[in-house]
Computed example of a mutant assay.
Amino acid sequence: MNITIKEIAKLADVSRGTVDRVIHGRPGVKPDIRKKVLAILKDFNYQPNLAGKALVQSRRNIKIGVVLSPDFNPFVEEMKKGIADEAEKISAFGVELDIEVIRAFDSSEQLAVLETLCEKDVSAIAIVPVDDESIRIRINEIVGGGIPVVTFNSDLPGSRRLCFVGQDNFRAGRTQGALAHILLREISEPKIAIITSTLHLACHKERVDGFQKKLSECTNFQVVACEENFDMDDVAFTLTSKYLETFPDLSLIYLTGGGIAGVARALERKNTGKFVRVLCHDLIPESRQLLYTDRIDAVIGQDPYNQGCLPIRILFDYLFMAKKPTNECIYTNIEIFTSENTSSLNLV
Rank of each mutant, 00 (worst) to 15 (best):
V223Q: 10
V223Y: 08
V224E: 00
E227C: 09
M232P: 05
D233I: 13
V235L: 14
T238Y: 08
L239R: 11
S241W: 03
K242H: 07
Y243I: 01
Y243V: 00
Y243C: 01
L244Y: 09
E245L: 10
E245R: 10
P248G: 00
L250I: 05
L252F: 02
L252I: 04
Y254W: 07
L255Q: 12
T256W: 06
T256G: 04
G259E: 03
G259S: 04
G259V: 06
A261Y: 03
A261E: 08
G262I: 05
A264C: 11
A264F: 07
A266H: 02
L267M: 09
E268H: 11
N271W: 00
F275E: 15
R277D: 03
R277I: 03
V278R: 00
L279W: 08
L279I: 07
C280A: 11
H281S: 13
L283Q: 13
L283I: 13
L283H: 15
I284E: 09
P285Y: 07
R288P: 08
Q289F: 09
Q289N: 15
Y292A: 15
D294W: 03
R295D: 02
I296C: 05
I296D: 05
D297H: 03
V299W: 06
V299D: 04
V299K: 06
I300F: 01
G301F: 02
D303L: 03
P304Q: 09
N306Q: 15
G308A: 10
C309E: 12
L310N: 15
L310D: 13
I314W: 07
F316S: 02
D317A: 08
D317P: 02
D317V: 01
Y318H: 11
F320S: 05
F320G: 06
M321W: 07
M321Q: 15
A322C: 06
A322T: 04
A322G: 10
P325S: 10
T326V: 15
N327T: 13
C329H: 15
C329S: 12
I330V: 11
Y331R: 06
T332E: 06
N333C: 08
N333G: 09
I334P: 00
I336W: 00
